[in-house]
Design a protein around this nucleic acid. Sequence first.
DNA 1: GTCTATAGGCAGATAGAC
DNA 2: GTCTATCTGCCTATAGAC
Lengths: 186, 186
Amino acid sequence: MDTKSRIIDISTALFQQKGYIGVGLNEILKACEISKGSLYHHFPNGKEELLIACLQSMNDVITTDIQDIFNRYPTAREATQAMIEKLTADFERDGTITGYTFSSIVSEIGALSEPIRLACASLYLNMQGIYADKLMADGLPKGAADSTALMMTAAIEGGIMLCLTQKSSGPLQTLSQVLPNTLKES
Amino acid sequence: MDTKSRIIDISTALFQQKGYIGVGLNEILKACEISKGSLYHHFPNGKEELLIACLQSMNDVITTDIQDIFNRYPTAREATQAMIEKLTADFERDGTITGYTFSSIVSEIGALSEPIRLACASLYLNMQGIYADKLMADGLPKGAADSTALMMTAAIEGGIMLCLTQKSSGPLQTLSQVLPNTLKES
DNA sequence: GTCTATAGGCAGATAGAC
DNA sequence: GTCTATCTGCCTATAGAC
């Protein structure tokens, strides 16, 4: 595997764990076992360019991941439940949630860097799109599917935030029971 | 008004707008028109101690604010709708949402500083408590009220995040239509 | 393409006069 | 209780050898 891909892979994990500002360039270099010169050779615009590459990588991984789950279950309701249960399992295992959430990145520099804000917006929209497609396949009209998909995205993002704040998977576990019910009744 | 209170008031606004890391000590000093020595006299433990004082201040303001809205409307459904509409109006006016969300603060240092994480957790629980009380007054049993209140908190927090990411009040506007319906059917 | 060395800036924090 | 001056350390970024 080439150096550039390795930098992206390792940096992606670090950004997800600690946020953009929380990870220093030196930490990335150490983790990748490369030097500063090498990093700036592959990413001439420095840390911000690296983050954008990482966001694209996250986009691919997360979209594939969610799409896979939504293909495996017959209805949006069951798929949602399975997805949230996967998140809680991740949290129980790792003590943190590394995927599906970019709130730390948005909060830190979304307001400062337009390219990064746009990359995050695209990520959220991709997730939301998968939910909406499944809801339409279930028979919901487009408008209702879009609204419901938006609420799912917001609730899951907020649920992850609550889990991190409380250091407990409780909020997501509760959501996995409540949220699918609201889908059923839509 | 004494210096300490003025520092807290001004810093609270800055932290809400730009997050914890986004605001430097020098910016706070300039906004408050004080010197570094003065700030460290009132907050010997520096920036972190100041943030905790600000979080307590936010807690008071936000709790009072939400409680006020929830007292003014007969049901949780109507109160929720009114609250979200207030948020969207704020967003339209200021271009940002300063209250009701601490996600940026949680994301930035919640994982690093235990006192700050706990202060944020307490804030979320207070909001959730107001929602739950109103839902119980509407006739929901305690368990269902707690679950629903959690979903409301998560959805609103996530909705704010989506608005900031998309630079649009659209997500919250959609939520103000979808979320109350899920309450109605609970 | 990778390295070392270093620049230059700004952060948070401290000391001590008044 | 407020001030100014200063310290130390970390950050991103660059220059230039190999």
